[in-house]
Nucleic acid binder design. Structure first.
Lengths: 197, 197
DNA sequence: GACAAAACGGAGCGGTGCTCCGGATACTAA
DNA sequence: TTAGTATCCGGAGCACCGCTCCGTTTTGTC
């Protein structure tokens, strides 16, 4: 709680220049390594790729979740912002929900191991899980509410449960032609529609 | 392919007495450790619990998947056998499918980390995944076919996809009151029902 | 009891997460 | 420009893990 430096500045600009530079270097390197080795890649490898020491990574991103969060920050944000946008543009709230889920799923399945990390049983990624929730849960809830309001789906589904379920369905090997999470998610959405008794 | 010893014996009885004894000891110890520490527990810990060396475990169960498979052998078998049984007893093929899935889910969620292991994107549990599939896929397919035949659900769903989807929905922390995989699986099944257009 | 085959146990190797601290670096003030 | 200092860096080091190798012990047989 000590006083901040002069002129405060925004979140990540109140550091020394080399620190700021290294932060970016690490983020770039991590993004590259994540593509080839998944978000579970050894910190040593990321450090080597960035040409820095391990401690530098830990100093900027104390937990692995912090690093992953920072790397995918923009895409999480884009996904969150797509929600209201779709709600305004799509043909129906249900379509908006469906398209938003498509975006979310595309995001998850193209990042090797990200879905696994999100639902990991260990606590190593707790902060990542929390950040996804903070940012995306309200969006999902809004879309869900709108669809219920419009009578497109039955009420009673909890946004958290739906979001985690979708994430769960994206877990595991993504190169298996026998398994496409999108088909199951479509079934799930179908199950949400009102009974046409 | 060398000649077997005298009196051959069934699968795991053609070894020396101490080996046979240790095999059982290890299985018991592993079952205990799995309950408290999950199926990812360190081999060292299981060895300590059993009072044997690590090499003994690796000798009897070359991969972790072999050990896990052996520990849960009986329950996998029971689950597989429940399929035809339910099909004969339940009110409808759909009910049979639903009840069988309940059994499967109960099995998964009560073994910490088992669902995670099954869908793990590493290859460490490949043999476990394969064994589950060998044993349960035909059962699931039979139940699915019967339900389609009876007109309870729409055709077109692949047993593998359904089984893996259910497994996926069981992944992650099992002590979160906000998330109950059974509710989502019920939705999934609902989505399988014919459109009452 | 002697012998060989089988099984055992744990030291040891490579790899990983994370920390600690001596040294290098960037800003500040004179 | 040059000192001085707070900040940051790098990698050695420790703990833990999976897995193997090999000298030792146990078991079954003659």
């Amino acid at each position: 709680m000590a006083a901040e430096g002069p002129a405060g500045g925004s979140a990540s600009r109140s550091k020394r220049a080399d620190a700021q530079r290294n932060r970016e270097t690490v983020l770039t390197a991590a993004a590259e390594v994540f593509v080839t080795s998944g978000v579970d890649a050894p910190i040593r490898r990321i450090a080597a790729q960035a040409g820095v020491g391990m401690a530098t990574i830990y100093r900027h991103f104390p937990t692995r979740a912090d690093l992953v969060t920072a790397v995918y920050q923009h895409q999480i944000e884009a996904c969150a912002e797509a929600g209201p946008h779709l709600l305004a543009r799509a043909g129906s709230p249900f379509d908006a929900l469906r398209q938003w889920i498509d975006i979310f799923v595309d995001f998850l399945v193209t990042k090797h191991g990200l879905a696994d990390a999100l639902q990991s049983d260990s606590d190593r990624f707790a902060a990542l899980h929390a950040h996804f929730l903070d940012r995306l849960l309200p969006v999902c809830a809004q879309l869900l509410d709108a669809a219920v309001e419009a009578g497109d789906i039955r009420p009673g589904t909890q946004p958290y449960e739906l979001l985690r379920g979708i994430g769960n369905l994206c877990v595991g090997r993504d190169d298996d032609p026998r398994y496409d999470p999108r088909r199951l998610i479509a079934l799930l959405l179908q199950g949400l529609r009102p009974h046409a008794s």
